[in-house]
Write a protein that binds this DNA or RNA. Sequence first.
RNA 1: GGGCCGUUAGCUCAGUCGGUAGAGCAGCUGACUCUUAAUCAGCGGGUCGUAGGUUCGAGUCCUACACGGCCCA
Length: 509
Amino acid sequence: MSDERSLRDIRLAKLARMRELGHDPYAVERFERSDSAENLVAKAESESTESVMFAGRVVSYRLMGKAGFAHLSDGDGKIQGYFKKDDLGEVGWELYQLLDIGDHVGVEGELFRTRTGEPSIHVRRLTPLSKSLQTLPLGKEKDGESWYGLTDTEQRYRHRHLDLLSNAEARRKLVARAKLTSAVRRFFDGRGYLEVETPLLQLVAGGAAARPFTTHYNAYDLDVKLRISLELYLKRLICGDLPKVYEIGRVFRNEGVSNRHNPEFSLLEFYEAYTDLEGMMETVEDLFRAVATEVFGTTVVRFDDGTELEFGGRWRRVVLLDEIERLSGVPKAALGSLEAAKVALGEREVVNPATGKRIVAEEEHTLGGLIEKLLEVFVEPTLQEPTFVIGYPIETSPLAKKEPGNPKMTRRFEGYIRGREVCNAFSEINDPVDQRERFEQQLGQRAKGDEEAHPMDEEFLYALECGMPPTGGCGIGIDRLAMILTGADTLREVIFFPTMKPEKGEAAE
RNA sequence: GGGCCGUUAGCUCAGUCGGUAGAGCAGCUGACUCUUAAUCAGCGGGUCGUAGGUUCGAGUCCUACACGGCCCA
């Protein structure tokens, strides 16, 4: 073999030789495996010498003359194979010598322990199941510490299969996210909720403050939008007397990418008739307890930084305006109007504790905007343990019922964990006249240039006019939830294929 | 949108003052029938992100752009 050929050409030549030997790896369709690598290792450790079959990817390879070793990985675990010329025969031995790290093989042999005690398979028969034509970024490891491997973040996201097969921690987070989603489904299914699917293509993309993606439906020669939330269609189902519904679905928001934003993400929304905020809070508590137990096996979740959070009990509950008063010194009484709030802020020289800079009230155009700013600066950092923050301003809550005693605030709460919002819930407006007024206020903001203001939705209003029972509703971003529970630094660590800009030459025509 | 940083072999990374490209792993050849970051001997491998500019000469300096990362808004 010439040294000048590419690594890929060399592997193609090995593939051709395997075929000459009558072992075309790509021709094999089926290979029974006795057990997982993890379980086989456990059996061998307990001195079992039973005959087993196993298949996996070659992740290490050590040849010593007329015998050798290779570790085979099934993705979650690995077990060492011992290959000896005397046992494999001429053809089998040549097949072993033609292996590369990255190939898939099937082996048959007995469990045993090597002289150094490592649980292994003494291989009697070797079946190539796939040739890897590419060198894989598989790191080496010793004492649990790995060398090399794939660390370039961009490559990890663009070639996620390499990340999954080579980085155990990345794999763990992504798998935990997938399990989390199915745990959520089991939770609601077990509580008598109906899982439903509602349209992704919508004429009016509502239910949230965000800019939609637009696409075109050729058959109707119609511009349509991709949904930005699930809310309005789900509430139309409540109006159809389906009293407990939920949906887990992809929504799309036409905005930038960051640690906490991906333009497409998975949203869980659930709605239950005849319940209120307290009912929703209890459901959220139960949901987190169930999910933590299923995904992590415990309600005490431990994070990489050593902190632990308990999801077994009742969450802390605080009222937003009370917390702002307590933490910023701005009296609740001054938060009744934008003018009074600006005066109060001006008198007190309220300082952002994180930056040391004064809060400039003049930058805010609405009372709601100012209150949310104070929430972000003063309250959010204090919300480490699971906490519900109750009572949000009306301008930013166009679908939530008004507070009976304070029409500038709404019956809405958000759940926080480790300073980050994990859910958003309210007592849904079921007064069609109130809802129409809210939409009209939103249209006013839209006219002033707020592209994220909520559009009018006449079909939704018609459903409300037909009668919607009192209803509690809640939305939870599955990706952010997975991020928080797995301790990931960025959303992209819990999305298999995060949105990336195309590399040069990769863009579609 | 702004600032900073990164982009060199399949992977992880060096590269000094501007002088024609380096290591480990992976690969190839050989030795080795219990290794495990196997070992030992030898060998090959580069559009230095892209495009310009300065210079006798650019991985290195300058400009623009692309992609990514971090921070800020």
